[in-house]
Computed example of a mutant assay.
Amino acid sequence: MALKAVHVSDVPNLDQVPKGPTIALSSSLLPKGMEDLKSAFKPAKFVVIGHRGKGMNALASPDRRMKEIKENSILSFNLAGRFPVDFVEFDVQVTADDCAIIFHDNFILTEEDGNISEKRVTDLTLEEFFSYGPQREPGKVGKKLFRKTKDGRVFNWNVEIDDPLCPLEEAFQRVDSHVGFNIELKFDDNLVYQEEKLMHILQVILQVVDKYANERTIIFSSFQPDAALLIRKLQGTYPVFFLTNGGSEIYSDVRRNSLDEAIKLCLAGGLQGIVSEVKAIFRNPSMIPRIKESNLALLTYGQLNNVPEAVYMQHLMGINGVIVDLVQEITEAVSDFINPETVRDESLSDSVKEGKAKESTKLEFSQRELSFLMRLIPELVQQ
């Protein structure tokens, strides 16, 4: 397989990602689960997950692909589902009147009397939440949406194709059932949550899941350690993954500060896997066998997952899957190294195809390509 070279200078930050090839993944989704998931949870193949649907909205980015479709929307989920993704990932919070909604940011911004105003999403009622952005009712105009970046800049939340804000219930009802859901349980890093509050929020979300999930494949994940442990205690049907940036930021809760701590948390709480920032894995590749030996699955997220070569390296290293923004480009790249053309040759018998498929996992590439890959990853990780 010939890899498309991507220069380090082409990938300066999350807002700017390289343009690459396009793909197809056969969807061998993870099983819905068993009554008890105490045993190891292993994805059937290398998994591709669409970040907030068909990709997050990076409003400061010059790359139009990062502002193409409203993130965390029904439209974004369904458009991602046209490609061979296994899951779409999205963020779930609970409103003041106990409705599970899909929205990433802790605060929602609009303009009032010429000034930017912001309100905590979880302080809104469902009706107030729906009053922002494009409206479902013809002729009705919603409050204009703005978004604040990590460095404090505020942007109009303008995308090429907009879509109304949505509740979790609607995602189950309107997104094609073949698309799995990676439900991130979203909490504010700057708040301390008591167990009673966490329990209530998670029960609201589980009520929706229990009512509408049917046979849809679902994974729960959270950066909030206690939320991850609680959702595991409250249900035994769906796997729970702990999200971590692997130590790139330091928190008062030590459980969030390293991959070592992530492993400890998962083993203590019976969680099924870890979702790590990809740079933490590339900086500490020895953690991969340790995670595997702990019978935990490993997924990654982050900027580098929009680089086909970096995804390819993870496949070779034994990582179970990636969360990506460039759904089309990365699914095409994954298809290239998982399902080469010879396996798709209709003239071959089923037994020969099966043998070819097994052979395809033993990837062959030139010394020059391998050398390039080994140089690319450390340079990108240092940025």
Rank of each mutant, 00 (worst) to 15 (best):
E184F: 12
E359P: 00
R255Y: 11
T110E: 04
L79H: 00
L380T: 13
N57S: 13
F130C: 12
P138H: 15
I102Y: 08
T22S: 08
A228S: 13
G81H: 00
V343Q: 10
M56R: 15
L191A: 09
L271T: 01
G114C: 04
S28H: 04
E277N: 13
I274N: 02
S248R: 15
S131Y: 08
K356R: 02
L296H: 04
G269M: 11
E196R: 10
N295Y: 02
I218Q: 04
I183V: 15
C166S: 15
T237L: 13
F107K: 11
F181D: 06
Q382P: 09
V192S: 11
G81Y: 01
N57C: 14
E184P: 05
V334K: 02
W157D: 04
I338M: 10
E293D: 09
I330Y: 03
D105P: 08
G355K: 09
P308M: 06
L267W: 05
L230F: 11
E369R: 00
G33A: 11
L206H: 07
V278W: 09
I330G: 03
A227E: 05
K67P: 04
Q203M: 11
V381R: 11
L380E: 09
L30N: 02
I338S: 06
N115G: 00
K186Y: 12
A2S: 10
R147K: 14
S347E: 13
K38E: 12
L3F: 06
N320D: 15
V334Y: 01
G355V: 02
L202R: 02
K197I: 15
K233N: 13
Q194I: 07
E369W: 00
I23Q: 03
T95P: 09
E111Y: 05
Q382R: 13
V240W: 09
V278Q: 04
F41M: 14
V94R: 07
K358Q: 02
P138V: 14
L191R: 09
A171C: 15
D63H: 08
N182R: 11
I205F: 05
Q314A: 05
Q203N: 08
C99W: 11
T331E: 05
K358D: 03
S27I: 14
